[in-house]
Amino acid sequence: MSDISEDSTAAGPTQPSGGAGLSARQLQVRSIVQALGMLPVLFILAIAFHYLGDERFLTPQNLSIVAQQAAINTVLGAGMTFVILTGGIDLSVGSILAASAMSALIFSLLPGWGMLGIPAALLTGLGFGLINGSLIAFGKLPPFIVTLGSLTAVRGLARLMGNDATIFNPDLPFAFIGNAAITIAPGVRVPVLAVIAIVVILISWYVLRRTVLGIWIYAVGGNPAAARLSGIKVWRILLFVYSVSGMLAGLGGVMSAARLFAANGLQLGQSYELDAIAAVILGGTSFVGGIGSIWGTLIGALIIAVLSNGLTLVGVSDIWQFIVKGLVIIGAVALDRVRLQGSART
Protein backbone atom coordinates (compact mmCIF):
# COMPACT_ATOMS: atom_id res chain seq x y z
CA MET A 1 0.00 0.00 0.00
CA SER A 2 1.30 3.41 -0.88
CA ASP A 3 1.49 5.80 2.03
CA ILE A 4 1.58 8.90 -0.12
CA SER A 5 -1.24 8.48 -2.55
CA GLU A 6 -0.54 9.93 -5.93
CA ASP A 7 -2.88 11.23 -8.53
CA SER A 8 -2.64 8.98 -11.52
CA THR A 9 -1.08 11.56 -13.83
CA ALA A 10 1.74 12.14 -11.42
CA ALA A 11 2.29 8.41 -10.94
CA GLY A 12 6.01 8.06 -10.32
CA PRO A 13 8.48 7.20 -13.03
CA THR A 14 8.53 3.50 -13.68
CA GLN A 15 11.92 1.98 -14.16
CA PRO A 16 11.90 0.16 -17.43
CA SER A 17 14.24 -2.70 -16.61
CA GLY A 18 13.94 -5.34 -13.95
CA GLY A 19 11.67 -3.33 -11.71
CA ALA A 20 10.32 -4.86 -8.53
CA GLY A 21 7.05 -4.58 -6.71
CA LEU A 22 3.95 -2.95 -8.09
CA SER A 23 3.67 0.02 -10.37
CA ALA A 24 2.31 3.18 -8.86
CA ARG A 25 -0.94 2.75 -10.72
CA GLN A 26 -1.46 -0.83 -9.59
CA LEU A 27 -0.54 0.19 -6.09
CA GLN A 28 -3.06 2.94 -6.10
CA VAL A 29 -5.78 0.55 -7.18
CA ARG A 30 -4.72 -1.95 -4.59
CA SER A 31 -4.62 0.56 -1.77
CA ILE A 32 -8.13 1.64 -2.61
CA VAL A 33 -9.31 -1.95 -2.76
CA GLN A 34 -7.60 -2.60 0.54
CA ALA A 35 -9.10 0.40 2.27
CA LEU A 36 -12.52 -0.30 0.87
CA GLY A 37 -12.19 -4.05 1.25
CA MET A 38 -15.26 -4.22 3.48
CA LEU A 39 -17.40 -2.20 1.11
CA PRO A 40 -18.96 -5.30 -0.51
CA VAL A 41 -19.92 -6.56 2.95
CA LEU A 42 -21.64 -3.24 3.60
CA PHE A 43 -23.60 -3.42 0.34
CA ILE A 44 -24.58 -7.04 0.77
CA LEU A 45 -25.84 -6.34 4.29
CA ALA A 46 -27.82 -3.32 3.13
CA ILE A 47 -29.46 -5.18 0.27
CA ALA A 48 -30.19 -8.21 2.42
CA PHE A 49 -31.87 -6.10 5.09
CA HIS A 50 -33.82 -4.26 2.45
CA TYR A 51 -35.48 -7.41 1.19
CA LEU A 52 -35.74 -9.16 4.55
CA GLY A 53 -37.38 -6.06 6.02
CA ASP A 54 -40.15 -5.53 3.48
CA GLU A 55 -38.13 -2.99 1.49
CA ARG A 56 -38.04 -0.57 4.38
CA PHE A 57 -34.25 -0.38 4.77
CA LEU A 58 -33.09 1.55 1.70
CA THR A 59 -35.41 4.51 2.12
CA PRO A 60 -34.21 8.12 2.58
CA GLN A 61 -35.69 8.31 6.08
CA ASN A 62 -34.14 5.08 7.25
CA LEU A 63 -30.76 5.79 5.70
CA SER A 64 -30.74 9.12 7.46
CA ILE A 65 -31.35 7.27 10.73
CA VAL A 66 -28.51 4.89 9.94
CA ALA A 67 -26.21 7.84 9.24
CA GLN A 68 -27.18 9.34 12.56
CA GLN A 69 -26.55 6.08 14.37
CA ALA A 70 -23.17 5.69 12.70
CA ALA A 71 -22.06 9.27 13.32
CA ILE A 72 -20.90 9.08 16.94
CA ASN A 73 -19.17 5.76 16.45
CA THR A 74 -17.42 7.14 13.36
CA VAL A 75 -16.07 10.06 15.37
CA LEU A 76 -14.85 7.76 18.17
CA GLY A 77 -13.49 5.34 15.57
CA ALA A 78 -11.48 8.12 13.92
CA GLY A 79 -9.73 8.85 17.21
CA MET A 80 -9.27 5.16 17.79
CA THR A 81 -7.65 4.83 14.35
CA PHE A 82 -4.97 7.32 15.33
CA VAL A 83 -4.29 5.43 18.52
CA ILE A 84 -4.28 1.94 16.99
CA LEU A 85 -2.02 3.11 14.17
CA THR A 86 0.65 3.78 16.80
CA GLY A 87 0.14 0.27 18.13
CA GLY A 88 -1.85 1.45 21.15
CA ILE A 89 -5.46 1.22 22.30
CA ASP A 90 -7.86 3.60 24.01
CA LEU A 91 -10.44 1.85 26.16
CA SER A 92 -11.58 5.02 27.88
CA VAL A 93 -13.48 6.74 25.05
CA GLY A 94 -16.93 5.66 26.25
CA SER A 95 -16.32 7.04 29.72
CA ILE A 96 -14.74 10.22 28.37
CA LEU A 97 -17.77 10.67 26.16
CA ALA A 98 -20.02 10.43 29.22
CA ALA A 99 -17.97 12.92 31.25
CA SER A 100 -17.84 15.33 28.30
CA ALA A 101 -21.58 15.12 27.76
CA MET A 102 -22.03 15.95 31.44
CA SER A 103 -19.80 19.02 31.00
CA ALA A 104 -21.73 20.00 27.91
CA LEU A 105 -25.03 19.91 29.79
CA ILE A 106 -23.75 21.59 32.94
CA PHE A 107 -22.40 24.52 30.91
CA SER A 108 -25.45 24.59 28.67
CA LEU A 109 -27.52 25.48 31.69
CA LEU A 110 -25.57 28.74 32.25
CA PRO A 111 -28.09 31.42 31.35
CA GLY A 112 -27.01 33.24 28.22
CA TRP A 113 -23.74 31.26 27.93
CA GLY A 114 -25.22 27.91 26.98
CA MET A 115 -23.12 27.56 23.87
CA LEU A 116 -20.09 27.23 26.18
CA GLY A 117 -21.22 23.65 26.57
CA ILE A 118 -19.48 22.75 23.31
CA PRO A 119 -15.95 23.97 24.14
CA ALA A 120 -16.40 22.68 27.69
CA ALA A 121 -17.05 19.17 26.41
CA LEU A 122 -14.18 19.30 23.92
CA LEU A 123 -11.77 20.52 26.60
CA THR A 124 -12.96 17.86 29.03
CA GLY A 125 -12.22 15.20 26.43
CA LEU A 126 -8.90 16.75 25.53
CA GLY A 127 -7.91 16.93 29.19
CA PHE A 128 -8.56 13.25 29.82
CA GLY A 129 -6.80 12.39 26.56
CA LEU A 130 -3.77 14.38 27.64
CA ILE A 131 -3.67 12.53 30.94
CA ASN A 132 -3.83 9.18 29.14
CA GLY A 133 -1.17 10.31 26.72
CA SER A 134 1.17 11.63 29.41
CA LEU A 135 1.01 8.42 31.40
CA ILE A 136 1.76 6.41 28.26
CA ALA A 137 4.41 8.71 26.74
CA PHE A 138 6.27 9.78 29.88
CA GLY A 139 5.27 7.12 32.39
CA LYS A 140 6.01 4.45 29.78
CA LEU A 141 2.97 2.52 30.98
CA PRO A 142 1.15 0.11 28.65
CA PRO A 143 -1.79 1.82 26.86
CA PHE A 144 -4.13 -1.05 27.67
CA ILE A 145 -3.56 -0.66 31.41
CA VAL A 146 -3.65 3.14 31.45
CA THR A 147 -6.87 3.42 29.48
CA LEU A 148 -8.47 0.52 31.31
CA GLY A 149 -7.81 2.52 34.48
CA SER A 150 -9.31 5.68 33.04
CA LEU A 151 -12.27 3.71 31.68
CA THR A 152 -13.21 3.09 35.30
CA ALA A 153 -12.01 6.31 36.92
CA VAL A 154 -13.52 8.67 34.35
CA ARG A 155 -16.81 6.80 34.55
CA GLY A 156 -16.82 7.53 38.25
CA LEU A 157 -16.04 11.19 37.64
CA ALA A 158 -18.87 11.42 35.10
CA ARG A 159 -21.30 10.13 37.72
CA LEU A 160 -19.89 12.54 40.28
CA MET A 161 -20.39 15.48 37.91
CA GLY A 162 -24.15 15.03 37.93
CA ASN A 163 -24.40 13.75 41.51
CA ASP A 164 -25.17 10.39 39.95
CA ALA A 165 -28.33 11.72 38.33
CA THR A 166 -29.44 12.63 34.85
CA ILE A 167 -29.06 16.27 33.81
CA PHE A 168 -31.74 17.64 31.47
CA ASN A 169 -31.83 20.76 29.38
CA PRO A 170 -34.99 20.98 27.25
CA ASP A 171 -33.76 24.33 25.83
CA LEU A 172 -30.38 23.06 24.81
CA PRO A 173 -28.84 25.85 22.71
CA PHE A 174 -26.92 23.45 20.48
CA ALA A 175 -29.72 20.96 20.01
CA PHE A 176 -29.53 21.48 16.24
CA ILE A 177 -26.32 19.41 16.24
CA GLY A 178 -28.26 16.35 17.24
CA ASN A 179 -31.51 16.88 15.43
CA ALA A 180 -31.27 19.19 12.44
CA ALA A 181 -30.53 18.15 8.91
CA ILE A 182 -29.05 19.99 5.99
CA THR A 183 -30.71 19.87 2.60
CA ILE A 184 -27.96 19.21 0.07
CA ALA A 185 -30.26 18.52 -2.88
CA PRO A 186 -34.01 18.60 -3.29
CA GLY A 187 -35.37 15.84 -1.11
CA VAL A 188 -31.93 14.77 0.15
CA ARG A 189 -31.37 15.81 3.72
CA VAL A 190 -28.22 14.93 5.63
CA PRO A 191 -28.31 15.00 9.43
CA VAL A 192 -25.87 17.43 11.04
CA LEU A 193 -24.48 14.52 13.05
CA ALA A 194 -23.48 12.79 9.83
CA VAL A 195 -21.94 15.98 8.46
CA ILE A 196 -19.79 16.27 11.56
CA ALA A 197 -18.69 12.67 11.18
CA ILE A 198 -17.73 13.20 7.54
CA VAL A 199 -15.79 16.34 8.37
CA VAL A 200 -13.91 14.48 11.10
CA ILE A 201 -13.05 11.70 8.65
CA LEU A 202 -11.85 14.19 6.03
CA ILE A 203 -9.67 16.05 8.49
CA SER A 204 -8.27 12.79 9.82
CA TRP A 205 -7.49 11.65 6.29
CA TYR A 206 -5.70 14.91 5.61
CA VAL A 207 -3.65 14.70 8.79
CA LEU A 208 -2.71 11.06 8.21
CA ARG A 209 -1.88 11.31 4.52
CA ARG A 210 -0.83 14.84 3.86
CA THR A 211 1.05 16.01 6.91
CA VAL A 212 4.38 15.13 8.44
CA LEU A 213 2.62 14.21 11.63
CA GLY A 214 0.65 11.54 9.79
CA ILE A 215 3.78 9.90 8.43
CA TRP A 216 5.30 10.00 11.90
CA ILE A 217 2.24 8.27 13.32
CA TYR A 218 2.59 5.44 10.82
CA ALA A 219 6.33 5.31 11.49
CA VAL A 220 5.97 5.11 15.26
CA GLY A 221 3.41 2.33 14.90
CA GLY A 222 5.41 0.44 12.31
CA ASN A 223 8.75 0.43 14.10
CA PRO A 224 9.07 2.45 17.32
CA ALA A 225 12.79 1.76 17.73
CA ALA A 226 13.58 2.92 14.21
CA ALA A 227 11.36 5.96 14.72
CA ARG A 228 13.39 7.00 17.74
CA LEU A 229 16.68 6.47 15.91
CA SER A 230 15.36 8.60 13.04
CA GLY A 231 14.95 11.50 15.41
CA ILE A 232 11.18 11.34 15.75
CA LYS A 233 10.04 12.51 19.17
CA VAL A 234 7.97 9.45 19.92
CA TRP A 235 6.53 10.93 23.12
CA ARG A 236 5.04 13.80 21.15
CA ILE A 237 3.32 11.47 18.74
CA LEU A 238 1.85 9.41 21.57
CA LEU A 239 0.68 12.50 23.40
CA PHE A 240 -0.94 13.70 20.20
CA VAL A 241 -2.87 10.55 19.35
CA TYR A 242 -4.31 10.07 22.83
CA SER A 243 -5.26 13.75 22.97
CA VAL A 244 -7.00 13.46 19.63
CA SER A 245 -8.83 10.37 20.77
CA GLY A 246 -9.89 12.13 23.97
CA MET A 247 -10.98 15.27 22.16
CA LEU A 248 -13.00 13.33 19.61
CA ALA A 249 -14.64 11.47 22.49
CA GLY A 250 -15.48 14.95 23.80
CA LEU A 251 -17.02 15.78 20.44
CA GLY A 252 -18.96 12.53 20.68
CA GLY A 253 -20.17 13.78 24.05
CA VAL A 254 -21.48 16.98 22.46
CA MET A 255 -23.19 14.96 19.76
CA SER A 256 -24.99 12.61 22.09
CA ALA A 257 -25.92 15.38 24.53
CA ALA A 258 -27.38 17.34 21.64
CA ARG A 259 -29.31 14.34 20.48
CA LEU A 260 -30.77 13.46 23.89
CA PHE A 261 -31.10 16.91 25.54
CA ALA A 262 -29.73 15.04 28.53
CA ALA A 263 -26.76 13.18 29.91
CA ASN A 264 -26.36 10.48 32.48
CA GLY A 265 -22.94 9.69 33.88
CA LEU A 266 -23.76 6.08 34.52
CA GLN A 267 -25.39 4.94 31.30
CA LEU A 268 -24.13 7.18 28.56
CA GLY A 269 -21.43 5.73 26.31
CA GLN A 270 -21.37 2.33 27.96
CA SER A 271 -19.18 -0.02 25.86
CA TYR A 272 -18.87 2.54 23.08
CA GLU A 273 -15.14 1.80 23.06
CA LEU A 274 -15.89 -1.71 21.87
CA ASP A 275 -17.90 -0.46 18.88
CA ALA A 276 -15.17 2.03 18.05
CA ILE A 277 -12.49 -0.68 18.17
CA ALA A 278 -14.70 -2.96 16.09
CA ALA A 279 -15.09 -0.24 13.45
CA VAL A 280 -11.31 0.20 13.24
CA ILE A 281 -10.66 -3.53 13.00
CA LEU A 282 -13.41 -4.02 10.41
CA GLY A 283 -11.71 -1.24 8.50
CA GLY A 284 -8.58 -3.34 8.15
CA THR A 285 -6.29 -1.39 10.47
CA SER A 286 -3.64 -3.63 11.96
CA PHE A 287 -3.74 -4.09 15.71
CA VAL A 288 0.06 -4.12 15.76
CA GLY A 289 0.22 -0.60 14.39
CA GLY A 290 1.64 1.05 11.32
CA ILE A 291 -0.92 -0.21 8.78
CA GLY A 292 -4.43 1.05 8.17
CA SER A 293 -6.61 3.78 6.79
CA ILE A 294 -9.30 6.12 7.99
CA TRP A 295 -11.68 5.22 5.13
CA GLY A 296 -11.73 1.67 6.39
CA THR A 297 -12.84 2.94 9.78
CA LEU A 298 -15.71 4.85 8.19
CA ILE A 299 -16.90 1.71 6.42
CA GLY A 300 -16.47 -0.31 9.61
CA ALA A 301 -18.64 2.14 11.53
CA LEU A 302 -21.26 2.03 8.79
CA ILE A 303 -21.34 -1.76 8.87
CA ILE A 304 -21.97 -1.71 12.60
CA ALA A 305 -24.76 0.86 12.25
CA VAL A 306 -26.36 -1.04 9.36
CA LEU A 307 -26.33 -4.19 11.45
CA SER A 308 -28.00 -2.59 14.47
CA ASN A 309 -30.59 -0.80 12.39
CA GLY A 310 -31.24 -3.67 10.00
CA LEU A 311 -31.59 -6.31 12.68
CA THR A 312 -34.10 -4.15 14.54
CA LEU A 313 -35.98 -3.56 11.32
CA VAL A 314 -36.11 -7.25 10.59
CA GLY A 315 -37.41 -7.84 14.11
CA VAL A 316 -34.45 -9.63 15.67
CA SER A 317 -34.47 -9.41 19.44
CA ASP A 318 -31.93 -7.35 21.33
CA ILE A 319 -30.25 -10.47 22.67
CA TRP A 320 -29.77 -11.99 19.24
CA GLN A 321 -28.52 -8.68 17.90
CA PHE A 322 -25.50 -8.93 20.19
CA ILE A 323 -24.78 -12.45 19.04
CA VAL A 324 -25.18 -11.70 15.34
CA LYS A 325 -23.10 -8.51 15.57
CA GLY A 326 -20.26 -10.33 17.24
CA LEU A 327 -20.27 -13.12 14.70
CA VAL A 328 -20.38 -10.73 11.75
CA ILE A 329 -17.35 -8.84 13.07
CA ILE A 330 -15.34 -12.04 13.44
CA GLY A 331 -16.54 -13.40 10.12
CA ALA A 332 -15.84 -10.22 8.17
CA VAL A 333 -12.31 -9.91 9.48
CA ALA A 334 -11.63 -13.59 8.82
CA LEU A 335 -12.88 -13.16 5.27
CA ASP A 336 -10.61 -10.17 4.85
CA ARG A 337 -7.59 -12.17 5.98
CA VAL A 338 -8.29 -14.87 3.43
CA ARG A 339 -8.79 -12.30 0.69
CA LEU A 340 -5.53 -10.52 1.43
CA GLN A 341 -3.48 -13.66 1.94
CA GLY A 342 -2.07 -13.57 -1.59
CA SER A 343 -0.61 -10.12 -1.23
CA ALA A 344 0.53 -10.39 2.37
CA ARG A 345 4.17 -9.97 3.08
CA THR A 346 5.77 -13.03 4.66
Binding site: M1, S2, D3, I4, G12, R210, T211, V212, L213, G214, I215, Y218, A219, G222, N223, A225, A226, A227, L229, S230, G231, I232, G290, I291, R345
Partner: peptide, 30 residues
Protein backbone atom coordinates in the same frame (compact mmCIF):
# COMPACT_ATOMS: atom_id res chain seq x y z
CA UNK B 1 15.19 -4.44 9.57
CA UNK B 2 14.98 -4.12 13.35
CA UNK B 3 16.18 -0.56 13.90
CA UNK B 4 16.26 1.08 10.52
CA UNK B 5 13.45 0.58 8.08
CA UNK B 6 9.70 0.96 8.26
CA UNK B 7 8.91 -2.14 6.27
CA UNK B 8 5.26 -1.26 5.63
CA UNK B 9 5.97 2.24 4.41
CA UNK B 10 7.04 3.06 0.88
CA UNK B 11 10.64 3.39 -0.28
CA UNK B 12 10.10 7.09 -0.87
CA UNK B 13 8.84 7.72 2.64
CA UNK B 14 11.67 5.68 4.12
CA UNK B 15 14.14 7.78 2.17
CA UNK B 16 12.44 11.03 3.17
CA UNK B 17 11.79 10.21 6.79
CA UNK B 18 14.66 12.24 8.20
CA UNK B 19 13.87 15.35 6.20
CA UNK B 20 10.08 15.52 5.87
CA UNK B 21 9.99 17.71 8.97
CA UNK B 22 12.35 20.33 7.54
CA UNK B 23 10.99 20.03 3.99
CA UNK B 24 7.42 20.55 5.13
CA UNK B 25 5.44 23.59 4.23
CA UNK B 26 3.82 25.77 6.88
CA UNK B 27 1.59 23.85 9.26
CA UNK B 28 3.48 20.60 8.77
CA UNK B 29 1.97 19.93 5.35
CA UNK B 30 4.00 17.42 3.37
Amino acid sequence: KGLGLFLDLSCGTNINLGVIGSDARAGGIL
